[in-house]
């Protein structure tokens, strides 16, 4: 059974019907890329997984999003533990206003891990997982804001990994980065998919081609087509998908 399963999911902002009858399963331990023109609901879907969408006003939903079989929109869902299962990368890196070390330690600390030797070990471990350790090991207690944007984004990744999620959600994680930093993030993703289910939103088709195992194409709030990357990107069934993949619409 997949970690993430979306079941006839609808989402409204007030009277606007944003997500329409989304029905899709996301394969484990692969990189799933959600593509589609801007405004098609990609980010909204992504933020529904960990219910950050709650921060918006007037959100109504029906249908279900199941994470490990648990409906995240059910009334007695425990938001903190749901969110803890999912690391999140945003369009721009937002390091917390503290040191590099404290950024990574933030999650473990709020979830009750006490200060001590094992925290140092954790920080080192996750900075290595996010391919950042070698660049920051000499200045762990420097403010995180001093890092370059690319490094900040990997720090945000390490910070997310440190709460031991099963899933990584990434919302156009490289759109603020230069090509080199982008390549680093993509390489890190490919390395991480052995242990994590990765769901990334992007509007860069070439990026989708580089990293995706599975592709979901969305258009005006609906999932038009989903399937293995090779099939959706090279050989789409639906005309809209074809047009999008060939750059006719964007």
């Amino acid at each position: 059974m997949p970690h993430v399963k979306v079941n006839k999911f609808n989402l409204y902002f007030g009277n606007d019907h944003i997500l329409k009858d989304i029905d899709v399963s996301i394969p484990d331990k692969q990189i799933t890329v959600i593509i589609g023109p801007s405004g098609c609901g990609k980010t909204t879907l992504l933020k529904s997984f960990n219910r950050l969408i709650d921060l918006q006003d007037n959100v109504k939903t029906d249908g279900r999003i199941l994470i490990d079989g648990e409906d995240v929109f059910s009334r007695n869902a425990d938001l903190c533990s749901i969110r803890k299962k999912m690391g999140l990368l945003l369009q721009k890196p937002y390091p917390l206003p503290m040191s590099i070390y404290d950024n990574v330690a933030y999650g473990p600390r709020i979830h009750g891990l006490k200060k001590g030797g094992d925290l140092d070990g954790l920080v080192e471990h996750y900075l290595k997982e996010a391919s950042l350790w070698d660049e920051v090991k000499g200045r762990l207690h420097a403010p995180a804001g001093n890092l370059s944007l690319g490094q900040q984004q990997r720090l945000c990744l390490a910070r997310g990994l440190a709460v031991e999620p099963e899933i990584i959600l990434a919302d156009e994680p490289t759109s603020a980065l230069d090509p080199l930093s982008t390549a680093r993030i993509e390489k890190t993703f490919i390395k991480l998919k052995k242990s994590y289910t990765i769901i990334a939103v992007t509007h860069i088709l070439r990026q989708a081609k580089r990293i995706a195992d599975y592709v979901i194409f969305m258009y005006y709030g609906r999932v038009i087509e989903h399937g293995p990357a090779s099939k959706v990107l090279e050989n789409p069934e639906k005309d809209v998908t074809k047009e999008y993949v060939n750059g006719v619409i964007s």
């Binding site: 921060l55 903190c80 533990s81 803890k84 690391g87 503290m98």
Partner: peptide
């Protein structure tokens, strides 16, 4: 920026933890 709050909440922090450690610090 709201994204800072999102970042903290996404790690499973409660509202209060987010306010105390992130918002107040900023």
């Amino acid at each position: 920026p709201n994204e800072l709050r999102e970042s903290s909440l996404a790690l499973g922090a409660t509202r209060w933890q987010t306010v105390k450690h992130v918002v107040m610090r900023m």
